[in-house]
């Protein structure tokens, strides 16, 4: 044992290997450009880097004008949904090593919302739909006692849809939303589901009414793009199907 320790000489600082990846970024500066343009950047990266690190490297070392949103950098705030190699992903949760770096990595803004600059879109229409479904507890007076009690089973009923971080990856992956911006979109339905199936909530009827609208759940064509895009792994299409059933039955 002791010999093994003795042989363990401090090794020379190991050089962490790097590699070069090419990022093709769809850029748009409303003050200069008539239309978006693709620009490529060769970035030196580590095995452990994510797309967000690559974007930082470009912004900090190559071109400070690159514009994108990010805040937490750890998949919590929902700021950095973008289209990476044709699919909606969070830049901060997409590891470069999971992508094929022998080809350029395509990065562009999410689809269906007005493009403002580079990777930034106007999120207002998205949040407007979210607000319309009353995404807050609508509870009446407490019945007996001081608390609104909920059993673990009742809590589990809507657990999946509590995980939403409002990143818009789902809504902007939906072919129906691309062509019909009036459609509430998966994220609004997910957040309605979170309260419709909450045993403490009493506003289910109101929300089901709102989502029974022409631009509500019936717009859904079950393409499953939203389920595939959700960085929280929420079974979005399943949640929409459950809301459809609740509307048919007239209750959650």
């Amino acid at each position: 044992m002791s010999t093994a320790v003795a042989e363990n000489k401090p090794a020379a600082a190991e050089v962490v290997p790097t590699f070069t990846a090419t990022l093709m970024i769809r850029r748009f500066d409303p003050e200069v450009d008539e239309e978006p343009r693709w620009e490529d950047f060769d970035v030196e990266l580590y095995e452990t880097d994510r797309i967000l690190d690559a974007l930082h490297k470009i912004k900090w070392e190559m071109d400070g004008s690159l514009t994108f949103r990010r805040s937490c950098a750890h998949g919590v705030c929902g700021s950095d949904a973008m289209r990476i190699n044709g699919r909606n992903r969070l830049a901060c949760k997409t590891l470069i090593k999971d992508l094929d770096i022998s080809k350029p990595i395509y990065v562009e803004a999410i689809k269906g919302l007005p493009l403002e600059k580079d990777l930034i879109v106007d999120m207002e229409p998205f949040f407007d739909s979210f607000k319309e479904v009353n995404p807050f507890l609508m509870a009446g007076p407490v019945k007996g006692g001081k608390e609104r009690k909920q059993s673990p089973v009742e809590r589990a009923r809507f657990d999946d849809t509590t995980k939403c971080i409002l990143c818009a990856a789902c809504t902007s992956s939906c072919p129906v939303f691309w062509t019909d911006g009036q459609y509430f979109g998966p994220a609004a339905i997910v957040n309605a589901h979170r309260f419709i199936f909450d045993s403490r909530d009493e506003g289910a009827g109101v929300r089901l009414d709102i989502l029974n609208d022409k631009e509500g759940v019936w717009r859904c064509r079950t393409t499953f793009n939203c389920t595939d895009a959700c960085p929280r792994g929420i079974q979005v299409t399943q949640a929409i199907a459950e809301v459809k059933q609740a509307i048919i039955k007239g209750k959650p």
Binding site: N85, G86, E108, A109, S173, F224, N225, D228, T237
Partner: peptide
């Protein structure tokens, strides 16, 4: 932009 790469659905 690129074509959205949806899956079977």
């Amino acid at each position: 932009g690129t074509l959205y790469r949806g899956k079977e659905g």
